[in-house]
Design a protein around this nucleic acid. Sequence first.
DNA 1: CCTATTTTGTACTAATCGGTACAAAATTAA
DNA 2: TTAATTTTGTACCGATTAGTACAAAATAGG
Lengths: 200, 200
Amino acid sequence: MKVILIMAGRPKIFDEQSAVEKALEVFWDQCYHTASTEELLKAMGIGKGSFYLTFKGGKQELYQKSIRLFFEQQYQQMEVMLLQAENPITALKKLFRALARGTAKEQQRGCFLGNALVQLSEKETVVKNEVDRLLHQLQQLFALVVTKGQQQGIVNSGLDPELIAWQLLNLWNGIQVTRRMQRAPEVLQELIETNLEMIL
Amino acid sequence: MKVILIMAGRPKIFDEQSAVEKALEVFWDQCYHTASTEELLKAMGIGKGSFYLTFKGGKQELYQKSIRLFFEQQYQQMEVMLLQAENPITALKKLFRALARGTAKEQQRGCFLGNALVQLSEKETVVKNEVDRLLHQLQQLFALVVTKGQQQGIVNSGLDPELIAWQLLNLWNGIQVTRRMQRAPEVLQELIETNLEMIL
DNA sequence: CCTATTTTGTACTAATCGGTACAAAATTAA
DNA sequence: TTAATTTTGTACCGATTAGTACAAAATAGG
């Protein structure tokens, strides 16, 4: 059943989700504090009137929504990739190996969620707590994948899946920082490879 | 030979280094962009006149100097601790284990150098490059310690010391992010312990 | 065409930003 | 005491910040 809502009033010139997607890019390239509303509005292609009507919470609401959108999209994609693969461990390794092959820009902007954890101050504790929750959800996904892998007998390590998942998340967080150091990509590759070898 | 410099003029009411130390705390609790000059000056206990006379480069110069000071002090301390220990590997492990036992505040503020890598934007590329260099120096210290350990036959892993050092630096960077997630300290402890076991 | 409703664009605001100008204060040397 | 020198504190600056107020515009329904 499709619901069509017809309302009087001047029509919106923008779609909320795609506006958030545009803002997300700005927040990611810069960070929450340095991204000015002016830049955000320009990227979204809307004026202040429209913005504050839609996002009554202002910049912070926009940021929170960009975080949620990012996670929904990214997590869903990962979940499909990891859980539908015939070999979940190979898929997991592929995910980490990709971290060494990003463009210079990608290397510099790191992980959107990890950034929030490091860049937000006490004023944004609410958002920070949500990011914490989301990253924990990612850790749980890793744990599930490892459990599946162990059941299939394709995991070398016999450690607790929960612990292995924390190691993976920590490896993830570390690489997102370390790869900001401009080094030959081989260093990063070797680093990731030996870590995966040890952990899984 | 002690050199005493006598100069005419109103005497300074503050010591530059201790002023930088105070500013460093503010930069660490907040971050470069959110720490306002007003707060910094208040923490340093000096006025604008004195500040801009001493730090002609303004806020950025102060930040850069706080980074250098931090590294000098921290690195020197680490170097002594690691290279003068009878068992350098044990000393190294001690360093990492301490990361799980910090106060809530320490957990939240992470590593001053790692923060810079994640928090600075393109405008501060110069500072970022210096931070990169300093962290690389830390990696080199780790490599030296590992080499010593291997010569003493107290390192399980036979991997290249350079690579092991990168793994240690990456573990360091990861923990500084992961520990911002509010979790039971046992998770962090276990994470660190098994990682050290695997790497060294 | 008229009214109700919603969105849009712009003008505006109060606060804060990093930084400068400069006179007064505090010292040394003559 | 006076001159030279340096530091200090304060008043001020233009720019930028996030956010508000509000009239004009654009729609639907009657």
